[in-house]
Design a protein around this nucleic acid. Structure first.
Length: 605
RNA sequence: GGUUCCGUAGCUCAGUUGGAUUAGAGCAACGCCCUUCUAAGGCGUGGGUCUUGGGUUCGAAUCCCAACGGAAUCACCA
């Protein structure tokens, strides 16, 4: 039972004793006392005025006096207007620190076989181009979110649906056949995803030239510009070839399938490197080439059941007009499947594979409509999980001149960015003289941890729902509200703890409650204790940024403490023990909190 | 046009299950603090009509309505 619950319960007793009323728990507004006032917790008494029939000050005074007399945890109180500020006794804080110390996973709820099973889909790349900054945000959010959900006592299955088939990959394949000269990632000295991406761009370049020429021809024949361009886009030889290739793929043509597999494998090898650098992973990967037929079958079944309608041209639609939405295409007139069809198939396979209680999709907010529709369709098709699937809808990463556009070359490549962050971290460390007595492998490791920490924190500290700004011209900060700031504090604490160990200073696991805890130390303990509530809230709101902001606030508070009080030079043994224990647990919470975000912390930096 | 989301300091962002005369951080600017546990740190100064206008309330950045500004989406692309 935490202190808030203890006090809440006592306040109920107080109101009962003083005013003879039984107030529900949710009417008791207990909040952290603002910095500028004395106290730890503040009771807002306005809701009780109707019961007390007294002024706010008098009501607060009465409740305060009752609590002081009857609740041992309360040491003193003060009243300002309708606010009753309560100070918790020193011994209680030692007790709380002991509780935190005794639990290496403080605040984290373990899961077991009987815990709810949450499947979380994230990443979900196309196999025709390398990952960019938008994917990085997706991957980091997906990973962090899955950790947060897990820390709230759920089992988690991390999954990825790879969009490995379709016209886009055919374009890359065709370009490689035409102009590739049998180049491979090995011979080109290039990651497979980048190689394939280059061919995709090459296809697009040639295709646009063809369209331009063809459109000009049509215009000469008397067509309007717009119509000519539209026709040219469909008639250009390259796109026709790509479509032919797609048809062959669907027919299982051995040659096309062979090339397709080869090229996808190159891409996967490239992705795996990026995933590894990002520190993310998956328990189960689905491929659209395996799921799209399942989706088609589901749609056909729905059609038989009268859930969907077939138009005259043969295409199949879901009518969602009674839900306030439009008609939605499910199968093209040629019978091929679309995005929605595939998601239906994937959902079916997943629920056959796992006893899923909840499904979370980490997908950008540009697809809000898609998931609104998917939820309804899955529900109609009789999947009981469909109705309350969660679309974790995150915002775009914007550049100073707008969205990232691959055509305009304004894409921030994931691998480039990662390399740049690590290089910057290395350079900063050199400049600050942090590397002096380190081996090369230690330097590499620290540069990696700090560089990635800066990148990850930068992306995760922002509310996921919001669009965010990234300016490539300004490098990501290493000072202030940043990952390295938090990592630095951790490293500093570890250094202090190492020195304490070197001088053989013993810190007991359980402190005596006689130890006097000063106000700053009390605040720190209270702040640490909040970690549990923050994880609960982050889980409830699907909000990794809440964890990031908490870590920052805790670290900021600790740094003040570190600056104002000495630890190792404290002559009073009991105080020294308290401060070391305090520091060790701040470090532990930083490590666990950052770990939830997928950010590592270095022992030195 | 319909739907959804967003609008807080020069910039990037916290703060929204309504709470305290002064709405917080960081960056950028200026100043101070390393013979003392790592200065990637600490302290300070300046910087705001929380887009605007109404409303609900003892109390609104937070809830409701409207306007203005921005984004996404409404594809036989995924």
């Amino acid at each position: 039972m935490n202190i808030e619950e203890v006090i809440t319960s006592s306040v109920r007793n107080a109101v009962q004793a003083l005013y003879g009323a039984d107030v529900p728990e949710n009417q008791i507004q207990l909040q952290k006392t603002k910095k500028e006032f004395e106290g730890h917790l503040t009771l807002v008494v306005f809701p009780f005025l109707r019961l007390s029939r007294q002024k706010p000050e008098e009501t607060a005074e009465a409740i305060g006096a009752w609590l002081l007399a009857n609740e041992p945890a309360i040491e003193k109180y003060n009243v300002i207007k309708g606010f009753l500020n309560l100070s918790i006794a020193s011994a209680y804080w030692v007790k709380l620190l002991n509780v935190i110390q005794s639990d290496a996973q403080y605040g984290i709820i373990p899961s077991d076989e009987s815990s709810p099973l949450v499947m979380i889909e994230y990443s979900s790349p196309n196999t025709n181009k390398p990952l960019h900054l938008g994917h990085v945000r997706n991957n980091l959010l997906g990973w962090a979110l899955s950790n947060v959900i897990k820390a709230n006592g759920n089992r988690v299955v991390r999954t990825n649906i790879v969009n490995d088939r379709g016209i886009h990959i055919c374009k890359s394949m065709l370009a490689w056949l035409k102009w590739g000269d049998n180049v491979t990632p090995a011979t080109a000295g290039k990651k497979g995803d980048h190689l394939i991406g280059d061919f995709y761009v090459l296809f697009d370049k040639h295709y646009r030239e063809e369209v331009k020429q063809l459109a000009a021809q049509y215009q000469q024949q008397g067509m309007e510009e717009e119509e000519a361009t539209e026709k040219a886009k469909q008639e250009a030889p390259l796109i026709r070839e790509a479509h032919e290739m797609l048809v062959k793929w669907e027919q299982g043509d051995a040659e096309v399938r062979g090339l397709w597999k080869q090229m996808n494998d190159w891409v996967y090898a490239g992705f795996d490197e990026t995933y590894k650098a990002l520190g993310v992973g998956f328990d189960k990967i689905y491929y659209e080439s395996d799921t799209y037929l399942v989706g088609k079958a589901q749609v056909e079944k729905g059609l038989e059941q009268g859930l969907f309608v077939r138009h005259d041209d043969g295409s199949v639609w879901a009518d969602l007009r009674n839900e306030g939405l439009d008609e939605k295409l499910l199968l093209r007139k040629d019978g091929t499947s679309v995005y929605m069809t595939q998601d239906i198939g994937t959902a079916k396979l997943r629920f056959e594979d796992f006893p899923i209680d909840k499904m979370v999709y980490v997908v950008g907010n540009e697809q809000n409509y898609h998931f609104q529709v998917l939820s309804i369709l899955l529900d109609r098709l009789g999947f009981k999980w469909g109705k309350d699937l969660v679309h974790f809808s995150y915002g775009m990463v914007e550049l100073p001149n707008g969205k990232m556009k691959s055509r305009e070359g304004t894409v921030v490549d994931a691998d480039d960015l990662i390399a740049e962050m690590i290089a910057t971290a290395r350079q900063t460390s050199e400049e600050l003289g942090k590397f002096q007595d380190m081996t090369d492998s230690e330097k590499d490791e620290i540069a990696r941890i700090v560089g990635m920490g800066a990148l990850k924190y930068f992306l995760l500290k922002v509310d996921a729902r919001k669009n965010m700004m990234f300016n490539p011209a300004e490098s990501i900060d290493f000072n202030g509200n940043t990952g390295p700031f938090i990592q630095y504090t951790y490293a500093r604490i570890r250094s202090v703890l190492r020195k304490a160990a070197e001088e053989n200073f013993l810190v007991p696991d359980v402190l005596s409650e006689e130890v006097e805890v000063n106000a700053k130390e009390q605040d720190l303990i209270q702040h640490m204790a909040d970690f549990a509530a923050v994880i609960r809230q982050a889980g409830q709101d699907y909000s990794p940024s809440a964890i990031a902001n908490y870590c920052y606030d805790l670290v900021k508070e600790y740094n003040q403490f570190y600056h104002d009080y000495s630890i190792l030079r404290e002559s009073d043994v009991a105080k020294k023990q308290l401060r070391l224990l305090l520091s060790a647990n701040v470090a532990k919470i930083i490590r666990n909190g950052m770990n939830l975000l997928g950010i590592e912390v270095p022992e030195r930096m």
